[in-house]
Computed example of a mutant assay.
Amino acid sequence: MPKNKGKGGKNRKRGKNEAERRQSASWCSRRNGQEYAQVTRMLGNGRCEAICVDGTRRLCHIRGKMHKKVWIAAGDIVLVGLRDYQDDKADVILKYMNDEARLLKAYGELPETLRLNEGVDVDGPEGEVEDSDYIQFEDEDIDKI
């Protein structure tokens, strides 16, 4: 029988939680040749489509260090590195957590029109209620209870 080398199984191949490590380090801000962007949709194969703060829609490639370790979804705020030779493509450098994205918006780095995933709206697009269990009470009804 072969001797156990002690390197572990499939769980060893998974990356450690980088969110815990990044809390102690200062989070990155935008530098020259970089831009903030919001992911509009995931395309698969390590690629996504994002709208940058400057208004350009770009095809972004998730770099190998983040691939299968940092999960990016539609609506997330990311830092992308722009390419000198291709204007319509960029590379995802960093994903911002929800609280970091709110801080960026508060500091004025992100535009006020950018909508963050802060919660689910109760009202639909025309103001109609989406949830069937939602009941709106009048002041008179509350007094009767």
Rank of each mutant, 00 (worst) to 15 (best):
G81V: 11
G108T: 00
R57Y: 06
E130V: 11
K95G: 05
N11A: 11
K3A: 13
Q34E: 15
K95Q: 10
E18M: 07
G124V: 06
N11R: 11
Q86M: 06
D88Q: 07
E35S: 07
K3E: 13
D84Y: 07
R47M: 15
Y96R: 02
N98D: 14
N4C: 09
P111F: 11
C48H: 02
N117K: 15
C52V: 01
H61W: 08
K3Q: 08
P2T: 04
V80M: 09
K69V: 04
D123W: 11
A90C: 15
G15T: 05
S24N: 14
L82T: 04
E112L: 12
H61E: 14
K7R: 13
D133W: 04
Y85W: 08
K144N: 04
R21D: 13
I93F: 10
F137C: 11
I62K: 03
Y85K: 05
I72C: 00
W27Q: 07
R31M: 12
K105S: 09
V78I: 09
L59M: 14
G6S: 06
G9Q: 04
A50N: 03
G33A: 02
R22P: 01
R12S: 15
D76Y: 00
R47K: 15
I77C: 08
G127T: 03
A25H: 05
D133A: 09
R83P: 02
I93Q: 11
N98Q: 13
L103E: 15
I51L: 15
E126L: 14
G6N: 10
T113D: 10
Q23L: 10
Q136F: 06
I62H: 04
R21S: 12
V92H: 02
V53H: 06
